[in-house]
Design a protein around this nucleic acid. Structure first.
Lengths: 226, 226
DNA sequence: ACTCGGTTTAACCATTGCTTAACACACTCT
DNA sequence: AGAGTGTGTTAAGCAATGGTTAAACCGAGT
């Protein structure tokens, strides 16, 4: 995932800490939102749906632990990366932190280099985690681990190429993939296959998943849409 | 996108804040417009079609939140970056701000360095997100990624050549494209087609998008205009 | 070596959309 | 007014593109 698409929600009651983190993350191209306490954080998180949430432990109204526990009860934040911000010496809190579902903790004082690389590490983890996992689009669930598709509760198993083609198209619903783009991403840059190969696979997919999902853009390529 | 092509609309009722921001942005090469209240901002925005709008929260006539809500209802500002300007302690407004479709908020007092980098971050996001993909002109949205045109909320799909022609003309609204320029850009430098080919495609576009958008300049070519 | 999915090819068909040609119209210049 | 130039309109033919099907191919596992 491109850094420019990654939303980070920073939560701390100290304005200067917030600014410092925000400045450093934005310099790297992250998309940064901030909140001053747990309540505000939850409100904001519901609106913007961040990829990563950094929670200070000590906060008024709702502390980090409680905020995290709260967030984890909500379906939409099951796969969100949550990290705690903690003063070096209060590391007893780690235990409690992981208990409520934190993914990492970061110690204050924050050093820019370390902080950024930590965030990047979290990001990588997120990608390998939910990236491989499942993808839900238009009533269809694509399970990348098990190479199968679930539609109306029915498990549909797909051969490799068909699955990869579906996976590519469904990764950006609505977006048109050019034929040569499809070829290079599914078949590889060097392999040479006939013109009709893509069509045949599209046909198989339409047969198995449904006609309507795959739209042809003549002269350009195909798109997946609900 | 080059900074010199980026139009920023600043909206604040305090003249000195306005000047300060304007000075700093212009020094960086941005193209800056200003308005003193929400009404004026909307009027001006419709004329200049800015890429980024910075709205102060507290304004006479129409406050930032309302202005933003208003702007977001208009098709042409669906993809415009809108950020709020807010005093540090009134940041509860974030929640309301994001609710009406804001992309970011910037806290006063403004520090030039931070301000500029924030604007650049907004710009990066705009580009990586929808910058190249979508194009909004005169109430019409051209989505290059999905290969479709949206007018009055209606999705219109166009055949390849028609889409490319529209795309060319709409890329610089108001500017006249000579017939041979159109030929070389849409049909390619070498292909030779008859005189009436362009006209027919223009006709199709007028049929589907609307008569008024395509103006004929006799003896020269065509232009797209709202 | 045979079988069986899965993948690719080839041949043919169907459809779309591009281009043309013919004519109508509008405008300008003499 | 009439010729001349450039554009608008229409329908029809044609070429490009994608859809369909069956059969050939390929490779892993038996």
């Amino acid at each position: 995932m491109d850094v420019n698409d990654v939303k980070v929600l920073l939560v701390d009651d100290e304005a200067d800490v917030l600014d410092f983190m925000k400045y450093n993350l934005e310099k790297e191209g992250f998309w940064v939102y901030t909140a001053r306490d747990g309540m505000e954080a939850i409100q904001l998180a519901k609106k913007i749906n961040p990829h990563i949430i950094i929670l200070d432990l000590m906060m008024p109204k709702l502390d980090g632990i409680e905020t995290c526990r709260e967030l984890r009860t909500m379906q939409e934040f099951k796969n969100t990366i949550i990290a705690f911000l903690t003063a070096r010496d209060e590391d007893y809190s780690q235990v409690a932190g992981f208990e409520v579902g934190a993914d990492d903790y970061i110690t204050k004082p924050i050093k820019p280099r370390v902080f950024i690389s930590r965030i990047r590490a979290l990001l990588r983890r997120m990608e390998s985690h939910s990236g491989v996992a499942k993808l839900n689009v238009g009533g269809i669930e694509i399970d990348r681990e098990r190479y199968l598709v679930i539609k109306d509760g029915q498990e549909i198993t797909l051969p490799r190429k068909e699955f990869e083609l579906l996976n590519l198209l469904a990764s950006k619903p609505g977006r048109v993939f050019k034929r040569d783009e499809i070829l290079s991403k599914v078949w590889g840059n060097d392999t040479i296959v006939g013109d009709r190969t893509i069509d045949v696979h599209i046909r198989k997919l339409r047969e198995k998943i449904g006609e309507d999902f795959f739209k042809t853009i003549k002269g350009i390529g195909y798109k997946f849409d609900a």
